[in-house]
């Protein structure tokens, strides 16, 4: 099983509902976020191109955060999801420095926190909160090893990219272009 997520940059309108849903579902402390929306504007007026992306932890298959963690708190869980064991994390910050996507942050309680693909939901057969609330249904989630999952189907049909593939992290967050 390899969980992955695909975000349709053509359908995303940048409403930030995914961000609020995540903060609510996961009780993210005020002032922090596990996912965020980036808007890229390229070209010059009137030939402008906009790309909107809902970004989060890429749950990389070759994850630098797991590699550099000195205690094994950052680990690969079932389905390749990267989680942090709170009672193993010493809060040294190595994983935060190691992430090229800056997807992690120090939780005010001391441990390091990040997107979990909402494990508590997906283990009960529900999609992650961000995917569930998206008003334009632009977030696809599923198992890459299952050819009939939402994410496999959409990746077969559409062109996609990943962020900073040259960092060698083998990310599992795809952007449909």
């Amino acid at each position: 099983m390899r969980y992955a997520m695909a975000v349709d940059t053509k359908k995303c309108v940048g409403c930030s509902d995914c961000v609020v849903a995540c903060q609510t579902e996961n009780n993210v402390p005020i002032g922090f976020c596990r996912d965020w929306v980036v808007e890229t504007m390229a070209g010059s007026y009137p030939q402008l191109e906009i790309e909107i992306r809902s970004e989060r932890c890429n749950h990389c298959a070759n994850a630098p955060c797991v590699r550099c963690c000195p205690t094994g708190a950052s680990h690969f869980d079932t389905g390749g999801i990267i989680l942090v064991k709170q009672n193993k994390c010493i809060g040294c910050g190595a994983c935060i420095a190691s992430c090229p996507y800056d997807a992690r942050y120090p939780h005010p309680d001391g441990y390091v926190d990040k997107c979990t693909f909402c494990v508590q939901r997906i283990r009960n057969g529900m999609p992650p909160a961000c995917a569930a609330v998206c008003p334009t249904k632009c977030i696809y989630f599923g198992d890459l090893d299952d050819p009939n999952s939402d994410v496999s189907l959409v990746l077969k049909k559409r062109k996609f990219k990943t962020l900073i593939p040259e960092a060698g992290t083998d990310p599992k967050l795809y952007f449909l272009i």
Binding site: G14, S16, V19, G31, F32, C33, W36, V37, V38, E39, T40, M41, A42, G43, S44, I52, G93, I96, A97, D102, R104, Y105, P106
Partner: peptide
């Protein structure tokens, strides 16, 4: 020209606007 901005306003303490985790 290429411009990027966080439209959802990511301001994670010690991570944004640039990493400052180690003092």
């Amino acid at each position: 020209m290429k411009e990027e901005l966080f439209v959802s306003g990511r301001i994670n303490h010690l991570v944004d606007p640039y990493l400052n985790i180690w003092h």
